[in-house]
Simulated scan of single mutants.
Amino acid sequence: MNMPASDVLKTNSLSPNNFSHLEFNTRDLKPQLEYFSDVLGMPLVSIRWADKTESSVRAMLKLNEHAMISFLCTLRTPSEVELGVTHSENPGDATTTGTVQHTALNVDSIEDLLAIRDRIRSRGVHCVGPMDHGFCQSIYFLGPDSLALEVATLTTDDMTQWIDPNVAEAIGLSAEEMIKLGR
């Protein structure tokens, strides 16, 4: 299943080209905004009533020119955290089906990764890593509401390393199915 790295990122003729925003629920918006602005350097770009109601607030922080991180604050949001069910306790732990296990953000270099790790730690936030995954290095930490976060940087442009045919086979994907998936 080895393919040229230039072919790995090719997609179907119609597919999304980036994400617009990732939105997380929170019961306390202010700590989220302070954390993502101070610790991760994301500026606030929007704060307003959500969906024209006065019972929910949506705030958005700029990730880059095309994408944002968004928080929806409503009193209906449960505040209980159950590690391993609602939230993972570490980057490899389980959460319930349909939830986000963790959110990974990108930086351009190992130097940037180490600099952001140091900034995170300087704010008193426990941060693990960098961990070498073979194709990228990552750091892991928790945000407010036990939001599991990662910052990563690619260490190779040979993305063929990302496909392990033995793993594909182990989860029941045939060679034909892999081709259908774009591999």
Rank of each mutant, 00 (worst) to 15 (best):
P31I: 03
I47T: 13
V57N: 02
V39Y: 04
R76D: 15
S109D: 06
S46L: 15
L44F: 04
D158Y: 00
L44W: 07
L147K: 04
D118G: 05
S109F: 03
L75Q: 15
T160S: 14
F71Q: 02
G124P: 06
S37H: 14
Q161L: 15
E65Q: 08
E89A: 15
R121T: 11
S109L: 04
T153F: 01
E82F: 06
N106A: 13
T103K: 03
G129K: 02
P78K: 07
C127M: 02
M60F: 12
L149G: 01
L147R: 08
T96C: 10
V81F: 05
T95R: 09
I163G: 00
E54Q: 14
L149W: 00
L154R: 08
S79D: 13
S37R: 12
G84E: 03
S138V: 02
L113W: 00
T155H: 08
T95D: 04
T86F: 04
G41W: 04
M159T: 14
D108S: 13
N90G: 13
L33G: 02
Q137K: 14
Q101G: 07
S79F: 07
G98W: 06
D93A: 15
E82W: 06
A170E: 02
E111M: 06
S79T: 13
I120W: 01
T77A: 12
L114T: 06
F71L: 04
L113V: 01
L83W: 07
E150G: 08
N166F: 08
Y140I: 06
E150H: 03
L113P: 00
T96Q: 14
A152M: 13
E82C: 11
S56G: 08
F141G: 00
I116H: 01
D158M: 00
V85W: 13
S88N: 11
C136F: 12
R76K: 15
A168C: 14
A59Y: 03
A59W: 01
M42C: 07
D132N: 15
M131F: 08
E82V: 15
I116M: 06
T160W: 01
P130N: 01
F135A: 11
T156I: 09
T53A: 08
L114H: 10
H66V: 08
I69Q: 04
G98T: 05
C73Q: 15
V45M: 10
S138K: 00
N90S: 15
V151Q: 00
A104K: 00
L63C: 10
E169N: 12
E65F: 03
M60R: 12
S122N: 09
D157G: 05
V167P: 02
A148N: 12
F71D: 00
A94P: 04
W49A: 14
N64H: 05
L105N: 02
G98K: 06
G129I: 01
D157E: 13
D108C: 07
I47F: 03
A115K: 11
V85A: 09
F141W: 01
V167N: 05
A104S: 10
Y35V: 04
L44G: 05
N106E: 12
T77W: 07
D132R: 07
N106M: 12
H102P: 10
G98I: 05
E65C: 05
H87K: 15
E169H: 10
F141V: 03
A115W: 04
D158H: 00
D118N: 09
K52V: 10
H126D: 13
I110R: 12
D118H: 06
H66L: 09
G92M: 09
